[in-house]
């Protein structure tokens, strides 16, 4: 308990010491990696993300991240997949058809970043986010829909750069992120690489 109070005191004191914040609104393009490619390998051009960070000092920030990315792919000529058609184990069924696959990934993370450079200049940074990710996997075959929704442990290392427009606190935020959401049940682990571009507001 004493340790916890000390941590809270340190965090609140440093937070009040840090007067600056960094908000960014980003558009990610995401590339599936690893086992996720077995489900959907196509690049995602649909997504949006928000980052909010508070500086502890000139080089370190802590904050939060939320984003939403949608992958989709139409799969043809796949082998049939088993379906449950009866409580009787001897009655077996399979369905085949064009598969419309969708993957919605929504990470909600706390993060910490280390920044290089100085105020008003180009500021490269590296960081790590940790938290949870909501994953909605859906396969539509004709009018049959097979869907799983899970909350998973999530991890997100990233590297980026904030490029200010002149002397304003506004600039372009470019970041490369590796997103990982752990395996849940029979579902595959999620891993993809995101290249984000967006607007950053640093003050």
């Amino acid at each position: 308990m004493k340790k916890l109070l000390i941590i809270i005191a340190v965090l609140t004191s440093t937070a009040s010491f840090a007067q600056r914040s960094f908000w960014s609104f980003n558009y990610p393009i995401s590339f599936a990696l690893g086992e996720q490619r077995d489900f959907i390998g196509k690049t995602s051009f649909r997504g949006f993300g928000i980052d909010g960070r508070g500086f502890l000092n000139n080089n370190i920030s802590i904050g939060g991240h939320w984003s939403w990315e949608v992958f989709n792919e139409i799969k043809r000529d796949l082998p049939p997949i088993p379906i449950n058609v009866s409580n009787d184990a001897n009655i077996k069924g399979e369905i085949s058809g064009v598969q419309y696959r969708f993957l919605n990934v929504m990470p909600i993370l706390v993060n910490a970043h280390y920044y290089m450079g100085s105020d008003g200049a180009v500021r490269p940074y590296v960081g790590l986010g940790i938290g949870t990710s909501y994953v909605d996997e859906r396969t539509d075959i004709g009018l049959v829909s097979i869907q799983t929704k899970t909350w998973r442990f999530a991890l997100q290392p990233e590297a980026g750069v904030m490029i200010p427009f002149g002397l304003t606190g506004v600039g372009a935020n470019v970041a490369a992120r590796f997103r990982y959401a752990a395996k849940a049940g029979d579902s595959l682990p999620i891993s993809f690489f995101s290249l984000s571009v967006g607007l950053g507001f640093m003050n």
């Binding site: 069924g93 419309y100 004709g142």
Partner: peptide, 22 residues
């Protein structure tokens, strides 16, 4: 943000289901 699959060819909705008693 338009969800993929808004325009689906009718043949893409065809399914073949087989059921048998093993």
């Amino acid at each position: 943000a338009c969800y993929p699959g808004d325009s689906i060819p009718i043949s893409d909705l065809d399914t073949v289901t087989t059921v048998y008693n093993s």
